[in-house]
Design a protein around this nucleic acid. Sequence first.
DNA 1: TGTTACTTTGTAATCATTACATATTAGCGG
DNA 2: CCGCTAATATGTAATGATTACAAAGTAACA
Lengths: 136, 136
Amino acid sequence: MPEDNVKKIKMTPQRAAILKYLEGNTSHPSAEAIFDAVRKQYPMISFTTVYNTLQTLKDLDRVWELNIDDERKRYDPNVMLHHHLICMECKKIVDIHMDFQLDVPDEKAQGYMISGRHVEFYGLCPKCRNKKKNND
Amino acid sequence: MPEDNVKKIKMTPQRAAILKYLEGNTSHPSAEAIFDAVRKQYPMISFTTVYNTLQTLKDLDRVWELNIDDERKRYDPNVMLHHHLICMECKKIVDIHMDFQLDVPDEKAQGYMISGRHVEFYGLCPKCRNKKKNND
DNA sequence: TGTTACTTTGTAATCATTACATATTAGCGG
DNA sequence: CCGCTAATATGTAATGATTACAAAGTAACA
């Protein structure tokens, strides 16, 4: 039978609520955003639980911790290779699904063993472009 | 005559010391690393001055603030387009000078105006590779 | 159903960074 | 060279995100 390659974690209502919120979520939420969202369904959840759960999911490679936002960590349940575009104004992050050629030849790798790659694009989202335009 | 395209800032001993430390520096120092280094030559400098100066230099596009390290901001005096490789173990960052094709077609840009791009590579530096090996 | 290791919770601590009030000074005009 | 003023430096306090910890609770296995 096909092996289930998703490692088991002890399932709790809190974790279920967090996982449900993250499932298919492409908003790249911060821990706080996750906390606020989950709290609506599960008011007694604590912030620490959100952090603990995110740490656990990260260790199991079930979420990706993004450092792209300079103000806070953001989390992405999509752990397949993809890239991101961040609005420098409002910090909204969207996915870029493109297959860039990102091979680094040994002589440029300086002895590092490279295991991950990620392209960040910086710009202005449609809303913030408009705001800027109207302020001119 | 050729216009000097470097905007003037009021020069102080503190700023001179910070600039001197950053000049040609490829270690991608944190604010704390800059503070520690500059303090050796200029013991009375305050941490706040380092942050203030970095903010000023950032506004003038004379340094690049990197969010690649999840623990702290790192600063890079080289503002020409280049990329980075970070050791997931010790957080050492090295430059990758390569010219990747990173154009995003309009239909993938989701209305964003893209003005910057940056590739992050994750891996293990030579030292940390060895440590890992010896622990096996 | 009992046990136990794993989780949750709340609070306190930590760490990086920013805010602010006060003292100092670079750089300009005279 | 001198004096003025806006910009800067300093120290301390505040902030905000994240982590540590101890005590109480519970999922999941036998």
